[in-house]
């Protein structure tokens, strides 16, 4: 069963609705003691990365999250929290991935926020993207991105530059897009994660 880390950063109605549609069992993690009940975790998050990190620290869950051994998926800002630093709020983050979250420069051809459906290209073999064709579209809405990195980028997307649409290190995963809003392939990705 998936434990959703509750730390007050954003609405999770759409995420839980997607899990319910897919018949994936989930519960909520409010305290460290709740972690043991679950065999995998999702860290959701929307809004400001610095503010989200403050909330996560206030929850007291940071040391336990950094020590997690079970599959853990960060979504959107929940993924950015896994990196070392964000330009949003000049914030130090969890540093599970030693890479940074940066702001899109923005231009008339590449507006910010990066809003809409863009193509995602997995670059490594991983069950997270099983049964999802190369270059499938996923729904993004974000102004900050995780830099591309040979070691940690699991899937890449181009938007004026190549950035990390998905990252992977050991049991930790992240996706910048919103699988719960990304049509059939988004649902496939959530199902894949539930079966690790």
């Amino acid at each position: 069963m998936i434990g959703i880390i509750r730390y007050g950063a954003g609405n999770i109605f759409s995420l839980t609705a997607a899990l319910e549609r897919l018949g994936i069992a989930y519960g909520m993690v409010n305290t460290e003691a709740d972690l043991a009940q679950y065999d995998r975790y999702i860290i959701p998050g929307v809004g400001h990365a610095g503010a989200a990190m403050d909330k996560l620290e206030n929850s007291g869950l940071v040391p336990a999250i950094k020590a997690l051994q079970k599959p853990t998926l960060g979504i959107c800002v929940g993924m950015q929290l896994l990196t070392s630093y964000s330009e949003e709020g000049d914030s130090d983050l969890l540093d599970i991935f030693p890479i940074k979250t940066l702001k899109f420069a923005g231009s008339p051809d590449h507006k910010v926020p990066h809003t809409g459906w863009n193509r995602v290209y997995p670059e490594k073999e991983n069950p997270l993207f099983q049964d999802i064709p190369l270059g499938s579209h996923f729904y993004f809405v974000h102004s900050y991105f995780i830099e591309y990195d040979n070691s940690y980028t699991l899937a890449a997307t181009d938007y004026s530059i190549k950035f990390s649409a998905s990252i992977w290190r050991d049991n930790f995963y992240g996706v910048q897009f919103h699988p719960e809003k990304s049509g059939v392939y988004g649902e496939t990705l959530l199902t894949n994660f539930s079966k690790f």
Partner: peptide, 11 residues
Amino acid sequence: VKSVARQINIP
């Protein structure tokens, strides 16, 4: 909104 969010997988 709740009914839509429960059943629709696009924004």
